[in-house]
């Protein structure tokens, strides 16, 4: 008798969300099965990887990833265009880290001007990220949302402390929105509820349960993402059916393993290969856990993850 593999089916489905507009718009989500389980149901869209660029030169990034963008990273638009034209970026994540009070402390208007210039220059979807300073982000993201009105960009991140203003800004300007909580499945659900109770359409939301890096808490993020996906699919919980976003690069490129020179750690091998592998493995793990949108930094690790996606989809 031939072996028939068991098949799971689920009552829930992840929201299908389109980001950006025009021919380069991208759709994520829409699946009614666990990640890459295309043999059990519908997986209409591939996960998407956004290249991270910043509004200030990446002085705090390690050399391995900084050198890739040498010559273009002095200006966010030039940087983004390089990612799109030379590296094949399908999405850009613009991190306005220069607005942080401890960095350049750019004003909301300055940040909005950067967003405006970026949107005028690129034709792929844009993810607009604050500096993750809860208070500053709420003023910065209001101005940025106005600058991005009608572009179907993604705005983030709304946290419990500042979600009211940021949700209102995303709603008024018809943007997608990232809701970020701090590695707690229940608080993640709660924030999504609070946001939808303000009248924000849950089908325009993305959940960021907070990323981590391999060997620095990856398993916490992994199990939170996995639990979100199971609640969304098996329990048909609409509050957890928005696609999941994993902000990978910023977590990976600050850990010891992506920075320690070979001279100090000869047993760890090539620093460059190690950093790229660290980012790729972290990202691939989150894809398996359920992330649909990744933000990454190194083109080599992005290519490795794209290859992984292509092989998993077969």
């Amino acid at each position: 008798m031939p072996f028939t593999p068991p098949r799971e089916s689920y009552s829930g489905k992840i929201f299908e969300e389109t980001i950006g507009s025009g021919p380069k718009a991208i759709t994520v989500g829409g699946e009614n099965v666990l990640p890459f389980h295309s043999f059990e149901g519908a997986t209409p869209h591939k996960p998407v990887i956004a290249f991270e660029v910043q509004d200030v030169p990446p002085e705090d990034w390690p050399e391995v990833v900084k050198e890739v963008y040498k010559g273009v990273s002095g200006d966010p638009v030039t940087w983004a265009k390089y990612c799109i034209e030379k590296l094949g970026a399908e999405t850009i994540a613009l991190r306005l880290v220069g607005t942080h009070p401890d960095r350049q402390n750019f004003s909301p208007d300055e940040a909005a001007e950067t967003v405006r210039k970026m949107l005028a220059a690129i034709d792929v979807p844009l993810i607009i990220l604050g500096s993750q300073h809860a208070e500053k982000d709420s003023s910065v993201l209001i101005k940025c949302a106005e600058a991005a009105k009608g572009t179907n960009s993604v705005l983030g991140k709304a946290q419990e402390a500042n979600h009211k203003t940021i949700v209102a800004a995303a709603m008024a300007n018809d943007l997608k929105l990232i809701a970020m909580s701090e590695l707690d499945i229940n608080l993640s659900k709660q924030l999504n509820i609070l946001i939808t109770q303000m009248g924000f359409d849950k089908a325009k939301l993305m959940t960021d349960p907070m990323s981590s890096a391999l060997s620095y808490g990856l398993e916490y993020t992994y199990s939170v993402m996995e639990r979100i996906k199971l609640a969304a699919l098996a329990q048909n919980d609409p509050t957890l059916q928005p696609p999941i976003l994993a902000d990978v690069g910023m977590m990976v490129w600050k850990v010891k393993e992506t920075q320690a020179p070979e001279a100090d750690m000869p047993a760890w091998g090539s620093l460059k290969d190690r950093g790229i592998a660290w980012e790729a493995v972290t990202a691939a793990s989150f894809l398996i856990a359920g992330a649909e949108v990744l933000i990454m930094r190194h083109p080599d690790s992005i290519n490795a993850v794209k290859k992984f996606i292509a092989e998993m989809e077969v």
């Binding site: 499945i185 229940n186 608080l187 659900k189 329990q235």
Partner: peptide, 12 residues
């Protein structure tokens, strides 16, 4: 455990 807990679960 049939529904995931959140502070606002009664409102859902």
């Amino acid at each position: 455990g049939k529904t995931l807990y959140a502070h606002s679960y009664l409102e859902m």
